[in-house]
Amino acid sequence: MNQMFSPDGFDVAGSGPLYLQLQRRIADAVAEGRLAPGDSLPAERDMAAMTGLSRVTVRKAVQALVAQGVLVQKRGSGTFVAARVERLEQALSLLTSFTEDMARRGRSVESVWLSRALHAPAPEEVMALGLGAGDRVARLERVRRSDGVPLAIERASLSAQVLPDPMAVEASLYALLEERGLRPVRAVQRISAANLGAKDADLLGVAPGVAGLRIERVSYLPSGRVVEFTRSLYRGDAYDFAVELKLAPGGEATDGRTTKG
């Protein structure tokens, strides 16, 4: 570590801004295993003293690495090398639950429940679920973990006619719906980029402002009735979503629109 923070080697003239040079040193040490997940870094004032750089320069390098997910800062504790997260490739051609998907990979699943209750529906829930006046909505909010690592925040809404007892959902919502003959058979899913706010970032164990994936899904029964409206946030450093494209008759590329549940 002393060599990494040595004042030697910082090139004011030709190697780019000083904060980028320090950023590269730390990132290289993490990539090469000289800094392991969970290792703590010296305080900013100590890094400044060791490198001969200003605290502003050190802070800029550290904040850039926090934003990239390489480092994580814990209030009152300091700066640490972030835990490595295995990237998962998720096909967008299968309608499976989180529990089923992780089981297929041989990974454990855990839900940290934030809320399970009946509510008066919000306007977007009324529109998505086709609810009428006086209808209630079951909301399920939880952090989905695999092998102890938080991967997603899932916020699902269902008509109270479909799910009158939200507390009945334990590990898998889809398993419960299947038992009741209400499992969806198709879904429309939209994925967009998002920067995680402080509350969601804390739930996922990452720094506020880091990149995430916002996924909105509407799922349907064989009859065409909407059964589920879900808005989820996934860690951007943990997921790659993939879809197979095929050449349609007439020569235009197309893709299946059935997606993950």
Rank of each mutant, 00 (worst) to 15 (best):
D11F: 01
G16T: 07
P17N: 06
L20R: 10
Q21A: 00
Q21E: 03
L22F: 05
A27V: 02
A29H: 09
A29T: 06
A29N: 09
A29F: 11
L35C: 07
A36V: 14
A36K: 15
A36I: 12
P37K: 02
P37L: 05
A43K: 13
M47V: 15
T51F: 09
G52E: 10
V58H: 10
K60E: 15
A61T: 01
A67T: 04
Q68S: 10
V72Y: 10
Q73P: 11
K74R: 15
G76C: 06
G78D: 05
A83N: 08
L88V: 07
L88F: 09
E89Q: 08
Q90E: 13
S93I: 01
S93D: 13
F98Q: 05
M102C: 00
M102D: 00
R104Q: 04
R105T: 00
G106D: 00
S108H: 04
E110S: 02
A120I: 10
E124R: 04
E125Q: 04
M127P: 00
L131S: 04
A133S: 12
A133H: 09
R136G: 13
R136H: 12
R142W: 14
R142C: 14
P150W: 06
E154P: 08
E154A: 13
R155C: 10
L158C: 06
L158G: 06
A160Y: 02
Q161H: 11
V162Y: 08
A168T: 02
E170W: 05
A171W: 14
S172F: 04
L173R: 07
L177N: 02
R180S: 04
R183M: 11
L196G: 00
A201W: 01
A201R: 02
D202F: 15
D202T: 13
G205W: 03
V206D: 07
A207C: 07
P208L: 01
V210S: 03
V210F: 03
G212Q: 01
I215N: 09
I215Q: 12
E216K: 10
E216T: 13
S223D: 04
V226E: 04
L233F: 09
R235I: 07
D237L: 07
A238E: 10
Y239W: 15
D240Y: 12
D240G: 11
D240T: 14
E244W: 07
E244G: 09
L245W: 15
L245R: 14
L247K: 13
G250K: 08
E252Q: 13
G256P: 09
G256Y: 06
R257W: 13
R257V: 13
T258D: 15
G261K: 06
